[in-house]
Computed example of a mutant assay.
Amino acid sequence: MNEETRPEPGTPEFREWLLEKVKPFADQLFNAEKPEGFEEDGYIAGPTKGEKLTPEKSVAEDVAIDKAHKRAHLKVEK
């Protein structure tokens, strides 16, 4: 079976075709290197270093975002 032909869903051939298509991605996903600190912290997604996630560093950014949302309805006229 070539890459261009897709079997009808629900058939045994479709299941085989689907497994062939997803196997390389699954192998890459499950064999990927785990970031440092994964075993202790259990990070699944995000930056490789947890220090970047601390709320203390993002407070100023959060305040700026909140102010921008509050002013979003205002129109600037020159």
Rank of each mutant, 00 (worst) to 15 (best):
E3F: 07
E3Y: 04
E4K: 14
E4Y: 13
T5M: 13
T5L: 06
P9S: 14
G10L: 12
T11W: 10
P12D: 14
E13W: 05
E13D: 15
F14V: 02
R15S: 08
R15N: 08
W17P: 00
L18T: 01
L19V: 08
V22K: 09
V22L: 15
K23S: 13
F25K: 14
D27Y: 12
D27Q: 15
D27H: 11
Q28F: 03
L29F: 15
F30H: 02
F30G: 02
N31I: 01
E33G: 03
K34I: 00
P35D: 02
P35Q: 04
E36H: 02
E36V: 02
F38D: 06
F38A: 08
F38G: 00
E40C: 06
D41T: 06
D41Q: 07
G42W: 06
I44V: 15
A45D: 04
A45Y: 12
G46D: 12
G46H: 02
P47T: 14
P47S: 13
P47R: 11
P47V: 12
G50Y: 01
G50I: 12
G50P: 03
G50F: 03
S58D: 13
S58H: 11
A60Q: 11
E61D: 06
E61L: 05
A64T: 03
I65F: 08
K67W: 07
A68D: 01
H73D: 10
H73T: 07
H73R: 09
K75Q: 07
K75R: 04
V76Y: 09
K78R: 11
K78H: 08
